Amino acid sequence: MAISAGAASFFITNSIVVNMTAGLSVGLFVPVVDEIAQNWGNIRNLWYSVRYRNRSIRVSTSYLFKIYIDGKYLLIRGNRYRNQFQPVGGVHKVSPQGNATLSAMGVTDDDLIPLDAVSYGDLRVRVPGKRIFQFFQWFDSRQGREDSPWREFQEELLAINILPQTKFPHIMHNYLRREVDSIRFSEWAEEMEILVADIYELVPNQEQEDALRQLAAYGHPDIVWVSSQQIKRRGASSGQPQTIEISAHSRRIL
């Protein structure tokens, strides 16, 4: 009887110890996982800086507008690729102060897009691999670079009177998310590449909604209104001949 009691006590005690150990392990594990999740971008960039320290990495950062009215998305004809439509938006610009910071890192201009009045100051660059972490720390600080989507909205829709400037003296928008593609080899660039896109959503007032509906009703040769399915299919519609081409990166606004 004494042996049975002792055995029972042994198992109870060990069960308590096991449960306490398991509870402590879970209690420690969850905060660690949370910390990793919250800092995953930094961890990833730090790894890139080590893994690709002796290579040059092409980095292109942009912002895109989701303009959505009555179940349709507004897309605009591309400036460089006139046969395709894409979201309003473009590459971030860098200020002279930002250029000085990037030069100190050894960052150079990308040579795939001709440097002209349109592309001057674009944040489409070649970053020394060992500086990737430092580059994204600078990018996230928002110092010395464009931090508003207004410029491209104004240039692409208002300056050429696709939308009336009187109805859009200012705009309200929501910041939705940032998409950072995993590093990959780009056959086009013949280099490792990271693409970054900040996604914004236009929040029009009633007068601006009316102007957008009027644009949809009357049409414009440089504008299309498309469904999410058309965007996913790059412009194709079921049972109909394809009449437009939609850029691959348009999926980001869905």
Score class of each variant (00 low, 15 high):
26 V>D: 02
111 D>A: 13
145 R>V: 13
88 V>Y: 00
20 M>L: 12
204 P>C: 08
223 I>N: 11
87 P>D: 03
246 I>P: 01
4 S>K: 07
150 W>N: 03
121 G>C: 14
134 Q>I: 04
7 A>I: 12
253 I>K: 02
218 Y>H: 14
136 F>P: 02
15 S>V: 02
148 S>C: 13
172 M>S: 05
102 L>N: 07
67 I>P: 06
227 S>E: 08
142 R>G: 11
21 T>K: 14
186 S>Y: 12
62 S>D: 02
31 P>N: 01
210 D>E: 10
74 L>D: 07
85 F>N: 00
254 L>S: 11
71 G>H: 02
139 F>Q: 10
60 S>L: 12
129 G>C: 01
47 W>V: 04
144 G>C: 04
212 L>I: 03
55 R>M: 15
247 S>D: 06
40 W>A: 09
26 V>R: 03
135 F>S: 12
235 G>N: 08
53 R>K: 13
191 E>C: 15
175 Y>A: 03
172 M>N: 00
56 S>R: 08
74 L>P: 05
13 T>I: 01
247 S>T: 09
110 D>L: 10
62 S>N: 10
180 V>L: 06
139 F>A: 05
160 I>A: 05
36 I>D: 01
215 L>M: 14
76 I>T: 03
143 Q>I: 07
40 W>E: 11
199 I>E: 05
171 I>Y: 12
192 M>Q: 09
173 H>G: 03
117 A>P: 00
225 W>K: 02
32 V>T: 02
232 K>P: 01
42 N>H: 11
103 S>G: 06
59 V>S: 14
215 L>A: 09
98 G>Q: 04
96 P>V: 04
96 P>N: 10
23 G>D: 09
108 T>A: 13
62 S>I: 06
105 M>H: 08
91 V>S: 09
252 R>K: 06
145 R>N: 01
95 S>N: 07
80 R>C: 12
68 Y>G: 09
136 F>A: 01
204 P>F: 03
37 A>H: 14
58 R>P: 00
240 Q>D: 04
184 R>Q: 12
44 R>V: 10
192 M>R: 05
66 K>V: 03
24 L>F: 15
79 N>W: 11
105 M>E: 05
214 Q>H: 12
223 I>G: 08
233 R>T: 05
21 T>W: 13
38 Q>K: 14
224 V>Q: 08
136 F>S: 10
